[in-house]
């Protein structure tokens, strides 16, 4: 399964819900990849402080996926469009070019968007 995260953290439930869904599938042994794209790339920012708004951390929800070998990709062009670089990302995320997504969609049987 390919999980596309297109929404930013904390303002909307979507990104967190997508990361939890990815975890639930991976725990069961399904092969899962996550891509942060469009406003979803804001979830990659290392300096997030969700405590400031009393929300659970999307950083933790992401890094928990690493234990189940779920690769989490971040689209470089969408970071750049928002004035961010690879350096702003927290550890373990994999920056990719938008061009890599076509291949990613074709190698996963099912796709869901958050």
């Amino acid at each position: 399964m390919l999980v596309l995260v297109t929404k930013p953290p904390y303002g909307l439930e979507d990104a967190f819900a997508g990361l939890r869904l990815a975890l639930a599938m991976a725990v069961n042994g399904m092969s899962v990849s996550v891509v942060m794209l469009e406003d979803g790339v804001y979830n990659a920012v290392a300096t997030q402080k969700p405590d400031a708004v009393g929300m659970p951390s999307n950083v933790d929800a992401t890094t928990e996926l690493y234990d189940f070998d779920v690769p989490v990709y971040v689209v470089r062009e969408d970071l750049a469009k928002r004035g961010l670089s690879d350096a702003a990302m927290f550890e373990g995320l994999k920056p990719v070019d938008r061009a890599a997504l076509v291949e990613m969609v074709s190698t996963h049987d099912v796709v869901t968007t958050f």
Partner: peptide, 21 residues
């Protein structure tokens, strides 16, 4: 139910997954 039991089972047996959101 839950993601882990029910959605996982649904997806595992599915030919297509559609998201409405």
């Amino acid at each position: 139910g839950s993601l882990t039991n029910d959605l996982f089972g649904f997806v595992a047996e599915s030919d297509r997954l559609i998201t409405v959101a």
